[in-house]
């Protein structure tokens, strides 16, 4: 079983991202279980969403406390005291950032400037870019167990509006992910 956590802020689309990724892994042949950190959603407030994938049906229904992978939509969340303890020490992180971030020793970190890609693709506004599909595109590249076509199909089925812009964001991010090694 693989456990993935999404860290974002209200309005960035983290919960929808967890549902799209669940759909993509389902198309890849996995059993999936996605859910938001159960709370009242508010624009700008920290939002966490979770995704479990496994070859068998998933009975564990608690929240995720030691994620193997994380998609970090808002990099300032890294400074929260609860961030690192919620991850395995060698977790794979995908950061929405244009430059390398400090203090992430031990983690397997990749970077994608999802904010720029979202705006280039016309998703959201400068004040409120919708970065979720760009994040997913980059994740598909680094995850290693998900084919891009399954992700694209999932985006198409879960994002009936602005589908083409979201598809473009996925593809752009898939090619642009950076490890700064």
């Amino acid at each position: 079983m693989k456990e993935i956590t999404f860290f974002g802020r209200g309005g960035q689309g983290a919960v929808v991202a967890s549902e799209i990724l669940a759909e993509a892994y389902f198309r890849q042949g996995f059993q999936v279980q996605s859910f938001p950190s159960f709370g009242v959603e508010r624009r700008g407030a920290p939002v966490t969403a979770f995704l479990r994938i496994d070859k068998e049906f998933i009975y564990l229904r608690s929240m995720i406390y030691q994620a193997q992978a994380a998609l970090v939509f808002a990099p300032d969340i890294v400074n929260s005291p609860t961030f690192k303890p919620s991850l395995k020490p060698d977790a794979m992180l995908l950061m929405n950032a244009s430059d390398k971030l400090e203090n992430l020793n031990g983690f397997d970190v990749s970077y994608i400037d999802a904010t720029s890609i979202a705006l280039e693709c016309g998703l959201g506004s400068a004040a409120q870019p919708l970065v979720n599909t760009a994040m997913l595109g980059a994740f598909a590249k680094v995850a290693g167990d998900l084919e891009l076509d399954h992700l694209l199909a999932a985006v198409e089925s879960k994002a009936p509006q602005k589908t083409e812009k979201n598809i473009a964001a996925v593809k752009k991010a898939y090619d642009a992910v950076n490890r700064f090694e």
Binding site: A22, Q33, S34, F35, P36, F57, I58, R61
Partner: peptide
């Protein structure tokens, strides 16, 4: 735990 959880 069920109402908002997506699964197959």
């Amino acid at each position: 735990f069920i109402s908002h959880t997506h699964e197959v």
